[in-house]
Amino acid sequence: MLKVQNIIKDFGGLRVLDGVVFQVAEGAIFGLIGPNGAGKTTVFNIVSGLLQPTDGRVIFNGADITRLPPHAIAAQGISRTFQNIRIFGEMSLLENVLVGMHRLFSYSPAAMFFDLPKKRTEEKLLREKACDILSLVNLEDKADWAAKNLSYGGQRKLELARALATDPKLLLVDEPAAGMNPAETEELMDEIVQINRRGYTICVIEHDMKVIMGICGQIAVLNFGELIAEGSPEEVKRNPLVIEAYLGKEG
């Protein structure tokens, strides 16, 4: 479904990604791991169109999306969450999700100004759908809260819900468990698996090994911008290069 081909990214003179190659199969939960500064988030930024790679290509469902602007990539069916939370704090939870659904509304600005029936029925329908999405991450009872009043864990879940609202084929999740307590993490893992079962392909960056090993079928390991291993959780866990990257070389 997603093919990342030989991505190279330079920031000034610094090469942060050096020939990264991996594939995400449809229906999978794919894990992207690596030590701090390995370039994981940069990969997400390139796939979602926030950054342009210096070289290499990103193929999504057979189409080259490398140079498309972010909203066009979103329209192709790729959505993401952020490591540092970027919800719309002044809006309600429901509105956050509705903003994510923008693409699914088809009425024009003219219909808005003249309050045409098409606008009314669409707004109503999608409002119901937004409530449904909020219930996927167990936030439906707080739909009218201002998003900034949510707990940290709650905001992460809202980001996930908002990303889902764009009706993506592929969901990029950047460190969803960061800052969560063990109970919240447990709940989150469960929710990610539920979301995956609904037919969404998921690519997740995570530091928490328990999360990655628990939910991912396939894992790629980055270190200093290079791909050092790829495979099932079991294979990756035994790979000497991975052990070295995480624990350091034995004396």
């Binding site: 926030l50 719309f88 994510g100 923008h102 999608l126």
Partner: peptide
């Protein structure tokens, strides 16, 4: 309009964070 319509919400989303809004598919 700003609160009850998709374009209104899109306007508010862009005002809060342009990049995030773009990533969510808002033109």
């Amino acid at each position: 309009l700003l609160h009850k319509t998709k374009w209104g919400k899109a306007v508010r989303a862009v005002a809060e964070n342009r990049r995030t809004a773009a990533l969510l598919g808002i033109p």
